[in-house]
Each structure stands twice: as structure tokens, then as C-alpha cells.
Amino acid sequence: MQNDETDLKLIALLSENARLPVADLSRRLGIARTTVQARIDRLLARGAIAGFTLRKGPGLRAPVRATALLSIEPRAAAAVVARLKTLPQVETVHTTSGRFDLIVTLGADTTEDLDERLDDIRDAQGVKSSESLIHLSTKIDRAG
């Protein structure tokens, strides 16, 4: 079943603030509270909404952030990902197509800490090469 326009508006509102009360959602969407709750339940059951989570604000986010693009040895993905899981500064790891095999986002409190973590990633067994990109400023952040 596809999401209709109301579902998409509901998802957008919840993306901005997942803690909005159903009554507020109802008022903003112009539909009954029971309808809003039924739609949320249906979206959860279908997997359109995977869950509700906390988005870190500027006071909790690491002040220095980077993306590391990794090329890895054949059949080394599981070991490299296992190593990345041990580094608390690693926030996300994505597989990708193209020149790089993994995209890693990470944050640290200082440039020195970030440099050490990037060295840890580069030195991990199975990593052939890496390229690091330091985040300077955020222009759009829809994910938090």
C-alpha cells in the first residue's frame, strides 16, 4: 500500500518533531486524533516508520565531524565493520557503489582525537585506502 499525501505530511511533521502529541498532529493535518493514531500505527506496521529516535542537538554533537571514504580488501567487509563498531566516534557506516566500498561518518571532541580515530580506521586490517573529508559547516540537516 502506498503512502498518500496525508501520510507524507504526517511523516514530515514527525520527522521535525517525533514527540508532537497526536492532538497537535490532528490539528495540523485537519483530521481526527483517532485517524492520526490509526495512520501512525499503520505506518509502523508497514515499516514506513521504523521507530522514533533522539536527534542530538548542537550541545550533544561532537564539534569536529568527518566522513571517511574507504576502499577495502575483498571479503574484508565484516572484519572492517566489526572494527568500526568498536570506535565510539563512528556514527554511521554505509556500503556504497563506485570507487569506495564504505562511507563512514564520525565525530570527535578535538581535531587530535579525530586524527587518531582516522588513523585507527586507516590502519584497520582489510582497509586498502581511505580518503577523509572534514566537515566545515552544515547548510542543510534533515536527519539530525
Rank of each mutant, 00 (worst) to 15 (best):
L29K: 05
L14T: 03
L133D: 01
T110E: 11
A23H: 13
A48Q: 09
D113L: 07
R142K: 02
I72W: 05
D113I: 13
L118T: 05
I31A: 04
N17W: 05
G51T: 07
D123F: 14
L106S: 07
D119H: 15
E5D: 14
E73W: 14
H94D: 14
T96H: 07
Q37V: 00
I49A: 10
A12R: 15
D123R: 11
F52V: 04
K9V: 01
A82D: 08
A23S: 15
L8W: 10
A143C: 00
P88T: 14
D101Q: 03
S137T: 09
L14I: 03
V104I: 12
T34V: 11
I11D: 00
I140V: 02
R122S: 15
S132W: 10
F100V: 06
V36A: 04
R75Q: 10
V127C: 06
G98T: 09
G51W: 04
G30V: 03
R99K: 09
H135Y: 08
V127Y: 08
K128A: 10
H94M: 14
T111P: 01
R75H: 09
P58A: 14
D115K: 02
L13E: 08
V64H: 15
G126P: 02
G51C: 07
E131F: 01
A143F: 11
S137I: 04
G59P: 01
R117K: 12
A76R: 15
A12M: 13
R75V: 03
P21F: 07
R27Q: 13
T53D: 06
H135S: 12
L13P: 00
D115H: 11
L44K: 05
E5R: 01
A48G: 00
A66P: 06
R28T: 03
L54W: 10
L20T: 06
I134Y: 14
K139G: 01
R65F: 01
I134P: 00
K56P: 00
D141K: 15
T105S: 12
A38G: 14
N17L: 00
R83F: 04
L69T: 02
L14R: 01
R55N: 06
G51Y: 05
R65A: 02
A32T: 07
L70E: 06
P58M: 13
I121E: 08
R83Y: 03
L87R: 08
R61A: 03
R142S: 08
D120M: 13
R99N: 02
T86R: 15
T96E: 04
T95Q: 09
V64F: 14
A38L: 10
R33Q: 15
K128C: 02
Q125A: 15
L102Y: 00
T53H: 12
Q37F: 12
G47W: 03
V127P: 05
I31P: 04
L118I: 14
D24Y: 02
